[in-house]
């Protein structure tokens, strides 16, 4: 069977699954096939209130990548925050900049902490090379402003997610907006000194070490103070999202 024959069979299996385990299995199989036609079915699976199925569907949507972005943006469920959080996780995993406004809006204003968390993470996984060079500075500035705000969220997990994104943004803007970099390092230091949550402070410490590796590396690159480029560890397509 080629993919075009397979799709309806796998989609039907999801629709006809009559137990929680069968649903997980069916969504996993559909997700593994990586067929574009499966996107609406995978998106629907985000709303079944079945974490196993949702994890599999997010994996599948991330693997499909760019073709899933428009349908995700169109079908984001305004009435089911569980499904919305998973959809934002999928968008964060894909990293497509078309999701920017949705991510900014959700990270700043959604009432659900799991939606804000996923969106805050997504702001740090954007694929900057998709942005036209003339717009890069203004968009990165916009994301920076948003993250500095989100880093003050009342929920620890949203602040934690914001820290992961400040980390990757710090590395990205070391080239494009070096004069803004201190705003990130200042914010991180402020959080290390004042955040009430030990888990968040620990993540901040880790971010600081990634942005500014320990001194011994300095010896190899004298004269480059402050932020240095290093390999980012942003979630890429196909990463395990479990």
């Amino acid at each position: 069977m080629n993919n075009s024959d397979l799709a309806p069979v796998l989609i039907r299996a999801v629709q006809e699954a009559d137990s929680s385990e069968r649903l997980v299995d069916a969504v996993q199989e559909l997700a593994a096939a990586g067929i574009e036609e499966s996107v609406p079915t995978l998106i629907a699976a985000l709303g079944y209130n079945n974490p196993g199925a949702a994890v599999a569907a997010v994996d599948g949507l991330i693997a499909i990548g760019e073709p899933a972005v428009s349908p995700l943006l169109e079908l984001i469920d305004d009435y089911n925050y569980g499904a919305r959080a998973w959809a934002l996780r999928a968008l964060a995993g894909i990293g497509d900049v078309r999701a920017l406004n949705t991510l900014l809006e959700a990270a700043k204003t959604d009432f659900s902490l799991s939606v804000r968390r996923a969106a805050a993470r997504g702001l740090g996984t954007l694929r900057w090379h998709q942005v036209p060079p003339e717009k890069l500075e203004s968009i990165q500035t916009q994301v920076l402003e948003a993250l500095l705000l989100i880093a003050q969220d009342p929920e620890w997990v949203v602040r934690y997610a914001a820290v992961t994104s400040l980390e990757t943004l710090a590395i990205a803007i070391a080239v494009t907006l070096p004069d803004q970099a201190s705003r990130i390092t200042n914010q991180l230091q402020h959080m290390l000194d004042t955040d009430v949550d030990l888990g968040v402070r620990t993540r901040v410490k880790f971010a600081q070490q990634k942005i500014q590796p320990p001194q011994h590396q300095e010896a190899f690159a004298p004269g480059i103070p402050g932020i240095k480029l290093q390999e980012t560890e942003v979630a890429h397509r196909g990463d395990s999202r479990r």
């Binding site: 996780r89 993470r121 934690y160 620990t202 993540r203 070490q209 979630a235 999202r241």
Partner: peptide, 18 residues
């Protein structure tokens, strides 16, 4: 001063679940 290995492992898992 540096985070223990176990902490870094947990951080990486947490990041993947955000």
């Amino acid at each position: 001063i540096t985070l223990p290995e176990g902490a870094i492992k947990v951080i990486n898992l947490m990041d993947s679940l955000l």
